[in-house]
Structures are given as C-alpha cells and as structure tokens.
C-alpha cells in the first residue's frame, strides 16, 4: 500500500501542476468554466466519500450543507460590500453554521440504523429546502438572487486557480484525516461497528466528527459553487445535489477520495458533452439516466467503482476481495 500511496501522491501532484499551467498554455473559456465546475463538485463528492466510503453511512441530506455554504455566501455578498474580506467571512459563516448543524443533526440521527438515518437526513434536507423557499425576505424564494463579486474573483482564470487550489488542499487534508488513527477507527466502524464498540470506542462520537468534517467541507464547495455562478437559488438544497455527489462517489470509487474527483470529472464532462448532443436527439437531454443505470450496475457488480476496481487489479486480488465487498456492503 505504501508504494501505491507514494505513486498516487506523485500522480496527484503532477496532474495538479499540469492543471495549474493549463490556463496559461491553452486558452479556452468554456474549458476553464467546466474544469472549475469539476473541481467544485469534486470537493463536494470527496466530502460525501468521507461519510459513505470511510465511515459507511449513507446520507441523503448532504445537500443541506452544500446549500448552507451557498446561501451564506450569497446572502452575505448580497447584503454587504463585496470584498475579499466578505468572501472569506461568508466562507467562514457557512463553515460555522454547518459545524453547528452537523453536530445537532448528527447527535439526533447518527445513533439510528442505516435505513432510518438515510430517511431522516432526506427529511432534514427537505426541511431546509422548504425554509429556503419560504423565507423570501432573505432568499427571494425559488427564483433566488444574483450578487456581485469582488473584482479579482470575476476573472475566470483566477477563479479557476482558486478552485483548483481548494480542491488539492482539501484532497490532501482529507487524506491526512483518513489516514490518521482517527480515520482508521472510522474504517473500523464501517467494517464492524459492534466490534469497535466492544473495543471501548464510542462509535457515535466518531461518526459525529466525521459528519462534521464532511458537512463543513460540503459547505465550502457550496460557497465556491455560488461564487462561480454569482447567483444562488433553492436548487442548492435539492435532492439532485445529493444525488450528484452520490453518483460521482459511487462511479468514481468509494473510500478512495481520488475516485470522487474522477467521478466528478466524468459526470460533469459527460453532462457537458451530452447537453451539446441534445440538439441531435432529445434523449441526450436526459443524460442523467445513463449515469443512473451505470450507477446501479456499479452498486451491484463493481461496488468499488472505477478507482477501487483498478487499484484492486494492480495490487492483486486476495484479501482485497473482501474489502471490495465490505466497502459498500457495510
């Protein structure tokens, strides 16, 4: 694993450097925007992977934190002067709100069995959606609102670099986190919660922390997302957002962190391509259906996703086989 790990780090650094140089070599506004989008969703999907892949919990309400970040940034930049300071402040507010809410929701829900947890998170997220729809004085309801950006962020190249930096930094931070002793306990919980408990650990406490880290990370991606659009509406709280993260994580590969990045690239890229194809046949407008089917097949036949399956091939089978079953199997 160690060798593989080093090679993986090297790979990430090289690809990261290439991506940093890209805007100076090849100037394409469309590509920059697309890649920016990919980076932002990769952050969101990685935060989801922390829950699903590393801790073995399925949340259907992760959009909640994405939306909290999105609205924090939107509302603050809409109401206050738009400067670097307020942008940072809005990120921070989103993080703090997510922190508080993930602790509250976590303690309420994480002691429940997987079914109930999934259901309850779904319900919580829909509650936030309702609030965003109804609290019109703050959110302007379904239609949402636009807001100004500070000068430097209006530059697409600059924003591209900022998003890329965020993605890479978060990737390495989460990697550190998952490889720490704490992260090892999370994986142990995924594998066999009762055993972890009998060893004297308190799984609830670990799960809450994991959901706090996942929630705050998701909030950052939500903030970046609306910064890239200069606009926010209730769609950030919808089920579709959570579904996107789920598709990216599952298809890319659960419990790998790099998988969600690849999943994000794949899905956003395909989205882009297939939307263009929609002029040929309207079936391509429903591009998500292909991913839905791909996703179902992945869950049944390749529960490790792209990255996991490839990694398995490289490092030989044997004991990895069991891991394959376990990851999504829980």
């Amino acid at each position: 694993m160690g060798m593989l790990n080093n090679r993986m780090n090297l790979f990430v650094i090289i690809v990261g450097l290439l991506l940093f140089l890209l805007p100076f070599i090849y100037e394409s506004r469309t590509l920059l925007i697309l890649l920016t989008q990919i980076f932002i969703f990769a952050i969101f999907a990685m935060s989801y992977d922390l829950l699903l892949g590393y801790t073995g919990i399925v949340s259907f309400g992760h959009a909640m934190f994405f939306g909290i970040g999105a609205y924090s940034t939107g509302i603050i930049l809409h109401r206050m002067e738009s400067t670097i300071f307020t942008v940072l402040l809005s990120l921070l507010v989103g993080i703090l709100l997510s922190l508080v809410i993930s602790i509250l929701v976590g303690f309420l829900t994480l002691r429940l069995k997987s079914h109930f947890f999934a259901m309850l998170t779904l319900a919580f997220a829909s509650l936030f959606l309702v609030v965003a729809e109804k609290w019109r004085t703050l959110t302007y309801g379904n239609d949402g609102f636009t807001f100004p950006l500070p000068e430097f962020l209006r530059d697409r190249t600059y924003f591209y670099l900022v998003s890329l930096t965020f993605m890479i930094a978060i990737y390495f931070l989460l990697k550190r986190f998952t490889e720490s002793p704490f992260g090892k306990v999370l994986v142990a919980i995924r594998e066999n919660e009762r055993r972890v408990e009998s060893l004297g650990f308190h799984p609830l406490y670990y799960k809450v922390i994991a959901s706090v880290v996942a929630g705050t990370t998701a909030s950052i991606s939500g903030s970046l997302y609306v910064l890239s659009l200069r606009f926010v509406n209730t769609s950030v709280f919808t089920m579709e957002m959570t579904l996107d993260a789920l598709l990216m994580t599952i298809i890319g590969g659960v419990g790998t962190l790099i998988g969600p990045i690849i999943g994000s690239g794949l899905i956003e890229f395909a989205h882009h391509l297939l939307t263009d194809l929609a002029s040929i046949s309207p079936i391509f407008e429903r591009w998500i259906i292909f991913f839905g089917i791909l996703y179902i097949l992945t869950v049944i036949f390749f529960p490790l996703g792209i990255v996991g399956t490839i990694r398995n091939r490289i490092s030989g089978k044997g004991k990895k086989e069991k891991y394959a079953k376990k990851t999504v199997a829980g």
Binding site: G56, F60, H115, L243, L246, V299, V328
Partner: peptide
C-alpha cells in the same frame, strides 16, 4: 447500504 444506494438510484 447497497439497498439504500440502489433503490435511490
């Protein structure tokens, strides 16, 4: 977990 994931998909 697989059930939850697959039925939602």
């Amino acid at each position: 977990i697989q059930q939850i994931l697959i039925t939602l998909g």
